[in-house]
Amino acid sequence: MHFSFHRFILLLRMQFAVNRRMYLLGAAAIAGLLLVYMLFRAANATFGFEFDIQEENFELSLCFLSLVFGTMIFRQFGAKTRRVQALMLPVSALERFAVAFLMVFIVFPATYSGIYVLCCAVTNLADAHLFGHPNQLYVFNGDSEVMTLKILYLILPVVLLSAIWFRKLTFVKTVVMLCLPVLVFSFFNSALGKLVVNSGSPANSGGAKYVFWNAMPFESFAVATTGRPGMETVYNVFLPAGQQWIFTLFAALIPLLFLYLAYLKLREQEL
């Protein structure tokens, strides 16, 4: 693996210079859309642009826009005319990968967060002084930012891989690539759960039966007893916390595997 910090900085500088117009226009467009949406909401919703809504919108939009941005990070490999020049540039695959990683994992989320908070602050002022809704301003002081970061950590490596894998319709293919495993997982998880419960019933059930409720591999398994509608009892069985680390470790390693695959795919790029 060849890595030169000097070339990395040159490549990063070039990334900004070549895409400057797109980044500036993109940032302006995002800020404009956010302001329109936020001000509309502040003016029309009963309680204005509430704290919880600010937080929820931030998390959803950050995940979605990071996905969009991530799929465009290797756009220089899309068309043959750009591809030749990109591949002939004297940089290593690791340096390219490091720039893409920095842009997708750090620069975009940080920039977007800044834009969002700025728009939120403007809306919050208007909300309080013009529309009479003194809402608290969201400045990453919610409860679920860590969960958002975890989700980004899980999806962005897949996005990086598909950004280098697919030359055309990258965004659509990335969304399919992200959704397909979730659907397959949900199907098999549910099918396996039902198989485990089968037609089991509690002792002294009086005719009641167990039905599969939900399950999370290496974490919990929930069943409900059938009774009168609306009167089900749900039982949750949790794996001891000390044993859940297997799944946590497994889940944490998957994104690393995708990152490594993205690096390999970048290294073996041909015309």
Binding site: A17, V18, R20, A79, K80, T81, V84, Q85
Partner: peptide
């Protein structure tokens, strides 16, 4: 390499 077809960046 000087390719036959190329695309120059906007700068």
């Amino acid at each position: 390499l000087l390719p036959e077809d190329f695309e120059m960046p906007p700068m």
